[in-house]
Design a protein around this nucleic acid. Structure first.
Length: 780
DNA sequence: AATAACTTTCTTTTT
DNA sequence: GAAAGTTATT
């Protein structure tokens, strides 16, 4: 028996009250069913544009309106902070008064950081722990690699970090990982895994993975605490369930074990975060994990035109293994999806710019109605340039967000050090910035001393007089110590923003930036001021919980996508990943080329290729009315111009809903060559001569000579490589005496300089080879 | 110890 | 073509 906090009388009068009826209004029958299925586990399988999040929002409002749950009993986990904020706002609109106050709604990471702030001490974390992002953890690993003599050239800190992270994601302990480590890189990761964890602990710091793992550990160690939260959250909601990883899955399971009122929403076809440990199996096995679960399918799409939906369907049906869904829409047929071929990335960007201008004039759209999507952040540059030239206002999501900027990270590091003196990563970051005469040598002495004495680096700094440093160096350290200590003691009695302002003022960061005397320097200066404002705002708004350390923790979990722009009427530029959950009347997807989308690395592994395809599916289904797909014949990558061939995904789409720019129908290659049949590797057999014919040759500018000139105007002849001698062309498979079999991604240079970029399987990856030296043999 | 000049490597996607 | 790592110079 479940207990409600209301008497049965209350329930009787409220069950079918006006408010609840209103909440159900405007939902389709399937959505209503999902909203009303409030007892026991529920899984909502939903396609794009079917009102997933809306359904979840209404369900929460319904729980409140019918009195089944009080706000504090509801936990809702979303994928981004922004999604949580929007959901909260909508719930507040749907229910009257303060009924929705006190709900816990946020990302997994933010939610469990908050939980650890309250109860982390049970597993040895004080509430002022630092949260280390990718940058901080990489820095930490870098110094560990030095100490353990791991060659940084051979194994990049980034790849080691990735391996450790995925081990943590799957909840594999250091000991267990040592046993299963197979490759050389994995062995190195196994070696560093434990020291890495110890370093984090010593620094009273948690990385993103720890934010999920530590609560699990806490719940296992202290059943009382688990019990408290199980009791409290009688209704649990998880959005984007297909993108949860193993740790998140366990957390949900732990918390839902008591009431089993867990409601998850997801679309397996939109799972695009496997690289981060997301386990698509979580959603596929929900019914097994929660027997008797109600399963609701939301298959009606309210977002896109019939043609766009049909295109999306033709993309996704190339993947195997999916939950069955039949998407349909009552929306109009709509215009054809337009396929654009550009000569270069500049040309492509111009086409996007022209499309936006035309459609705005012709269809009366505003700038905010457009999105330009791409696979990698690096692609934004050319697009930005074209939009800027065309006078079109835009915003770029991702890339460097406010809190990722160097000047902000520097200022934050000072503040983190204030709150948590054990935070080595922050200490290292600011100990000599701005330069104050504490060079590498001195730093080494300090850290070495700390290690020898078995004390924290900050304690070592407190004993700096014992180290026998040169007088100059010692004085520098002493004054740095004084700076931090002075403001730390102030923190006890003054407001967070006042302390922050004082410290930043005295660090000399601001003077450093002003000294630059450049517009960029000025902007950075303003950013730091902006940060201080943000702290002031946070402390006044968050009340009791508005401490400096809470601010610092929340800030490390913010992404650029969460930010609100002052002027929202802009074209949005972002990666396909960042576009998840959003919709726009017109969408332009750029860079549909082999090696870029799908990325070269993904083409070897069918699983990864399927994820790329899902990513294409996600991108295409962001569009409401107009969808443009573009590919360029050549593109600058790795700082060099390379010839590109159209993406295999373009061969897979339904040609009936696509037109070229000229309005003619689009012929996929799949009917020109044997290919097709859904076999992922059939593409490799495509006739290479087709590409040869599509490439034109002209002299390529020599590397490292002549200063950069702007690229030739569109229409001018484009460079590629000397095809005369080339047996080897993009798209074919080759064999290398050492590396084995691989696939040619692109070609560059000419004559003696001709090079091929070849992707080999296994640990080898992508290689650039001079044809003159490398004995490449074509495999047909 | 700090800076300037040069060389190499590398780019998925992100909470 | 940027960022990080290396070497040379002050």
């Amino acid at each position: 028996m479940r207990q409600f906090h209301l008497s049965s009388d209350d329930l009787a009068t409220r069950a079918d009250n006006e408010e609840a009826a209103l909440i159900l209004q405007g939902l389709n029958p399937a959505q209503q069913e999902a909203v009303q299925a409030t007892d026991g586990p529920v899984m909502i399988i939903a396609g794009p544009g079917s009102g997933k999040t809306r359904t979840l929002t209404h369900r929460i409002a319904y729980l409140l309106a019918t009195g089944k749950a009080r706000a504090y009993q509801i936990l809702a986990l979303t994928f981004t902070n922004k999604a949580a904020r929007e959901m909260k706002e909508r719930v507040h609109k749907l229910v009257e008064g303060d009924a929705a106050k006190g709900m816990w709604m946020g990302t997994f990471h933010a939610t469990f950081a908050r939980l650890l702030r309250r109860d982390g001490e049970h597993i040895g974390f004080t509430s002022d722990f630092s949260i280390y992002d990718t940058d901080d953890t990489e820095r930490l690993l870098r110094s560990l690699m030095e100490r353990y003599n791991v060659d940084k050239k051979q194994f990049s800190p980034r790849s080691i970090r990735g391996l450790i992270s995925s081990a943590k994601n799957q909840m594999v302990s250091p000991e267990a990982y040592t046993k299963i480590a197979a490759t050389q890189a994995q062995e190195k990761a196994a070696l560093l895994y434990r020291p890495y964890q110890q370093a984090l602990r010593r620094a009273n710091a948690l990385d993103f993975d720890d934010l999920l793992l530590k609560p699990i550990e806490l719940f296992e160690k202290e059943p009382e605490i688990l019990n408290k939260y199980q009791q409290r959250w009688s209704y649990i909601h998880i959005d984007e369930y297909q993108d949860t990883n193993h740790a998140q899955y366990i957390l949900a399971k732990q918390l839902a074990a008591r009431h089993k009122n867990i409601c998850v929403v997801g679309d397996d076809a939109q799972s695009i975060y496997a690289f981060r440990g997301a386990d698509i199996g979580n959603i596929l096995s929900f019914q097994r994990d929660y027997p008797g679960a109600t399963v609701v399918r939301l298959e009606q799409n309210y977002r896109s035109t019939k043609k766009i939906l049909r295109l999306a369907d033709s993309i996704i049906k190339n993947n195997k293994d999916q939950l069955e869904k039949e998407l349909w829409t009552e929306n109009r047929d709509g215009d054809h999806v337009v396929l654009m071929e550009a000569l270069s990335e500049k040309d492509e960007a111009q086409k996007a710019e022209r499309m936006i201008r035309d459609l705005r004039a012709r269809g009366g759209y505003s700038y905010r109605d457009f999105a330009v999507l791409y696979r990698t952040n690096a692609q934004s540059r050319s697009l930005e340039e074209a939009l800027r030239r065309g006078g079109i206002p835009y915003r770029v999501i991702g890339g460097v967000s406010f809190y990722q900027r160097k000047e902000i990270k520097d200022a934050l590091a000072y503040l983190r050090l204030l709150v948590n003196p054990n935070d080595v990563a922050s200490l290292r970051r600011v100990i000599n910035y701005p330069t104050r005469g504490i060079g590498l040598k001195t730093q080494e002495t300090i850290f070495e001393y700390a290690r020898r004495e078995g004390i924290g680096p900050w304690q070592a700094i407190e004993q700096v007089e014992q180290m026998g440093l040169p007088r100059r160096a010692q004085n520098a350290v002493v004054s740095f110590r004084f700076l931090i200590a002075k403001h730390a003691s102030k923190a006890a009695s003054h407001g967070a923003d006042e302390v922050a302002r004082g410290l930043i003022q005295e660090t000399g960061i601001l003077q450093e930036l002003r000294k630059e005397n450049t517009p960029e320097g000025l902007m950075r200066w303003e950013n730091v001021q902006e940060l201080i404002n943000a702290i002031a705002e946070f402390t006044t708004n968050a009340g009791e919980e508005g401490t400096l350390s809470a601010f610092l923790q929340e800030v490390s979990l913010l992404t650029d996508a969460d930010a609100e722009t002052d002027d929202p009427n802009r074209v949005t530029l972002m990666t396909l990943h960042a576009s998840k959950g959003l919709e726009f009347p017109a969408v332009f997807i750029a860079g549909l080329e082999e090696g870029l989308f799908p990325l070269a690395m993904a083409t070897q592994d069918p699983k990864e290729l399927e994820e790329e395809r899902r990513l294409f599916y996600v991108g295409a289904t962001r569009a409401q009315e107009y969808l443009y797909l573009a590919h360029a014949r050549s593109r600058y990558r790795y700082g060099e111009q390379m010839a590109c061939i159209p993406s295999r995904f373009l061969d897979e789409i339904d040609p009936d809903v696509v037109r070229t720019e000229a309005g003619t129908s689009y012929q996929t290659r799949s009917d020109r060559f044997q290919a097709s049949s859904g076999d992922t590797f059939s593409y490799d057999r495509v006739d290479p001569h087709y590409y040869r014919k599509s490439l034109r040759s002209s002299p390529k500018k020599r590397r490292n000579t002549a200063p950069k000139r702007s690229a030739p105007a569109p229409g001018e002849r484009r460079v590629v490589y000397d095809e005369g001698a080339a047996e080897i062309v993009p798209g074919i498979r080759v064999e290398h005496p050492i590396f084995g079999e691989g696939k040619v991604i692109s070609m560059e240079g000419r004559g003696e300089q001709t090079k091929a970029v070849v992707f080999f399987g296994g640990d080898i990856g992508q290689k650039k080879l001079m044809l003159r030296f490398a004995k490449l043999r074509r495999i047909d």
